[in-house]
Design a protein around this nucleic acid. Structure first.
Length: 399
DNA sequence: CCTCCACAGGAATTTGCGGGGT
DNA sequence: ACCCCGCAAATTCCTGTGGAGG
């Protein structure tokens, strides 16, 4: 670094095209590995939309990183292109139900992504209108600029209530839309998800069901190799890809994880200033991936939930017990100190309890109820799932 | 197996925000 | 410019209960 004239002038010694290692990167058709059957079936299920007909509604199951979202996005985009050649307008809405979990948020996101203010005179405000108003606008948008709307609901099991699904699935028959039609692709991690739905929604939503199996080590290797173009020639040591694939295969065949680890391995090599990605870097890359995943999750939490995580982490580090179980009240006092330091008014106890149980739902913490004996009442104790050091680091880095 | 109470958590209510309608 | 709506977040009020010690 020090002897170079420009900070940016040097060619990257490791990466040729790092974009290929971004998980959001949508590969070309021949780059999706080991999902040929699934893509075929999906295509078959929604092919009617190509000529303006109604596609089948689809439910896809499978663990994280098995290519559910990738295949859905790819196949719908392909469909939209093919339809455009027949002068059929297909709109695609992708909703991450983890982030947009309420009915209002979901409908709003769908309406927003299908809308094009230049072509419709409908606006979709961020807030300020009722849920039914969002629906009304969505139907307007569908009728005025599209022939078919395809809605991908990712992590559909995180939706609260099935009202949205009711409304969407009966839109056509209830006469909400006339000129257009719509299809739903639901994606879920839980195979049992279907059982939690009421009959009406169940039969309409799962006209076709698919299960995406985890990738095996061989497929993971193929996936990684297909993205090896991201690296310069000959920088990857012999055993790197097999080792990364083996690590990811052990953790339920998560391709996303595999790709992330590979990218981190490259970054580590870069930091070491070498032009070879050695196998030895893979373990460190694996650690880095776990830390990053934790930071991701924590940074998405609301401010006060992060303060609570920090409070719990600090309190955990203070105690000498091997498995520190911290009562809610103790977290609360630590939390008040954190708030004080940040110059924020602390939330009340009741709200904190709710936030803590949300954190438990996300598996960031674990809760357990304990009694303290006659005349002493009962209370819940909280425990961090991850290393307190890592957690507090993740909390501090988000500002 | 019963007891006892601090805390858990349900329900009702308020607050704050970002918009419509007029 | 004004008032009013619907929603989510937060607060207030309150009853119910988990479970160790007796």
């Amino acid at each position: 670094m020090s002897d170079s004239k420009s900070f940016f002038g040097n060619p990257d010694p490791i990466f040729a095209d790092k974009e290929l290692l971004r998980v959001s990167h949508l590969p070309q058709g021949d780059r999706i590995i080991g999902r040929d059957d699934e893509l075929q079936s999906l295509a078959k299920a929604i092919k009617d939309a190509q000529r303006g007909g109604t596609p089948n509604n689809v439910l896809i199951y499978g663990k994280t990183g098995t290519g559910k979202s990738l295949c859905s996005k790819y196949i719908t985009r392909d469909l939209a292109d093919a339809a455009a050649e027949n002068d059929v307008k297909v709109g695609i809405a992708y909703v991450d139900c983890f982030q947009e979990s309420t009915e209002t948020q979901t409908v709003r996101t769908i309406a927003r992504s299908l809308n094009d203010p230049d072509q419709t005179d409908v606006t979709v405000p961020h807030s300020g209108v009722s849920t039914s108003d969002y629906y009304r606008r969505l139907w307007d948008i569908l009728d005025s600029r599209l022939d078919v709307g395809i809605i991908i609901l990712d992590e559909i099991d995180k939706l609260d209530g099935d009202n949205v699904l009711m409304q969407l699935s009966r839109a056509a028959e209830a006469g909400k839309v006339n000129k257009s039609t719509l299809g739903i692709i639901g994606i879920s991690n839980k195979i049992r998800y279907k059982d939690t739905l009421n009959e009406r929604v169940k039969s309409s939503l799962s006209e076709r069901d698919f299960v995406f199996p985890p990738y095996d080590a061989g497929q993971l290797r193929a996936i990684l190799r297909s993205r090896a173009d991201a690296f310069r020639e000959d920088v990857l040591a012999e055993d790197v890809i097999p080792k990364v694939a083996a690590l990811a295969a052990r953790e339920h065949g998560d391709a996303r994880k595999a790709i992330d680890i590979l990218r981190y391995a490259g970054e580590i090599a870069d930091e070491h200033g070498t032009d070879t990605v050695h196998v030895e870097y893979v373990d460190e890359a694996h650690e880095r991936e776990e830390q990053a995943r934790l930071s991701e999750l924590i940074s998405k939490q609301p401010t006060h939930s992060r303060y609570l995580m920090l409070a719990l982490a600090l309190r955990t580090q203070e105690t000498s017990e091997e498995t520190p179980m911290i009562p809610t009240k103790q977290i609360y006092s630590a939390y008040q100190i954190v708030c004080d330091r940040e110059g924020t008014e602390p939330l009340k106890m009741r709200r904190v309890r709710d936030l803590l149980s949300e954190l438990a739902f996300l598996s960031l913490i674990e809760q357990d109820r304990k009694g303290r004996g006659k005349g002493k009442g009962a209370h819940t104790v909280n425990e961090l799932v991850d290393d307190p050091e890592l957690v507090s680091e993740a909390c501090q880095s988000t500002r």
